[in-house]
Amino acid sequence: MIHWLKKWLVGYHRETEKTGTDRERIHTLQKGPLPRHVAIIMDGNGRWAKSRGMPRVAGHRAGMKTVRHITRAADDLGIEALTLYSFSTENWKRPKEEVNYLMGLPGEFLRTDLDELVARNIRVRMLGEEDQLPSHTRDAIMKFKEATRDNTGMILSFALNYGSRAEMIRAMHGIIDDVISGKLEKEAVDEEYFGRALYTADLPEPDLMIRTSGEVRISNFMLWQLAYSELWFTDVLWPDFTREMFFEAIDDFQRRSRRYGAV
């Protein structure tokens, strides 16, 4: 464990040295209002690979490295929650080879990153329908949850087999069942109650949503939760999205005036 930690620290310092002013940058950003919860649509892996004449899975492999860098950046800043849109309910339509590779990523991430996540006191969770996932994917997710269950730092959520419309329908079905059974009066159902029926019940709503790759849409991601989120889009493809770009998004967030419908 000590050998691994020394090896990781060397790699971390090399990463931060690339910016030259990493610590100063973090210190400056921490003086301003930080988003409690950042949600990211990680888009552009396939196009990144295609532009290099590589198979799409190569883009996903490169994208996983970006997941590592951005998780570190968010944790270093003191962000409370980071949610990454990893696999949508619509992504099952992709080629079988690509889907199989994506379903294997949680296991690969478990092997390469679990120790660091535990050392950083990060808690890992999943948002989405687990029952439809392959058994090896569910097993990796379960091991992540168990290993980080008692951690009290940043909550890292992977939206996997996730679709916001399906999430809301699932929540409504549960509420309807409670009303029919007499456990709940329909008049008691308000926005707060509905929010507690979603996967994100114990998370603050995202203050900032980032999407990479130049697409300017939400794509069935957290439709309820993003009602008053600040949206930040970039043309940069996810594998090329850097720690400094993440800081740029936070800096832009801090320059905005959030009025929640007020004047």
Rank of each mutant, 00 (worst) to 15 (best):
L105R: 05
L114Q: 06
I26T: 09
R111T: 11
T66L: 07
S86V: 09
R61L: 06
S86R: 08
N45I: 03
E98A: 02
E15D: 11
H37Y: 10
S86K: 02
D76E: 14
L34H: 12
M64C: 11
G53M: 07
P106Q: 14
P55M: 12
K31P: 00
G20K: 08
R14H: 15
H69A: 14
M64H: 12
F87C: 05
Y101Q: 05
M42V: 01
D75T: 14
G78S: 05
Y101A: 04
S88I: 00
D76W: 04
T112C: 12
L77E: 03
R94P: 11
G104A: 14
K65L: 05
E17L: 08
E80T: 10
P95A: 14
Y12M: 10
T66F: 00
E90M: 08
A81H: 10
K96H: 11
V67N: 06
S86T: 15
G104T: 00
G59M: 13
R94K: 01
R56F: 11
R94V: 04
T28Q: 15
E90S: 05
S88T: 02
D113V: 12
D43I: 07
A49H: 04
H60R: 05
R47L: 03
E17M: 13
A58T: 11
M103Q: 07
T28A: 12
P55T: 08
Y12E: 11
L82K: 02
L77K: 09
L29V: 08
L29G: 11
A74R: 06
R56M: 07
V38T: 08
K31A: 07
M64Q: 15
E90H: 09
R52E: 06
Q30T: 14
G63D: 02
K93L: 09
E24M: 09
G46Q: 00
V99A: 04
A73P: 13
K93H: 05
E24Y: 05
D76I: 13
W92E: 02
E17C: 12
R47E: 01
P35C: 13
E24K: 06
D22G: 00
R47M: 02
T66V: 13
M54P: 03
H69P: 03
E116R: 15
R36A: 08
T71M: 01
L29P: 01
F87N: 08
E108D: 13
I79S: 06
G20A: 14
L77T: 10
L110S: 04
K65A: 01
R61M: 06
W92M: 09
L29Y: 07
R36K: 15
W48F: 03
R14I: 11
K96L: 15
T21H: 15
D22W: 14
L114S: 03
Y85L: 08
K65V: 05
L110V: 13
T112N: 07
P95R: 05
T19S: 15
H37V: 10
R56H: 11
D43G: 04
E97V: 03
Y85P: 02
G63I: 01
D113Y: 09
E98S: 08
G53H: 10
M54W: 12
T66Q: 07
T89G: 08
H37G: 14
R47A: 14
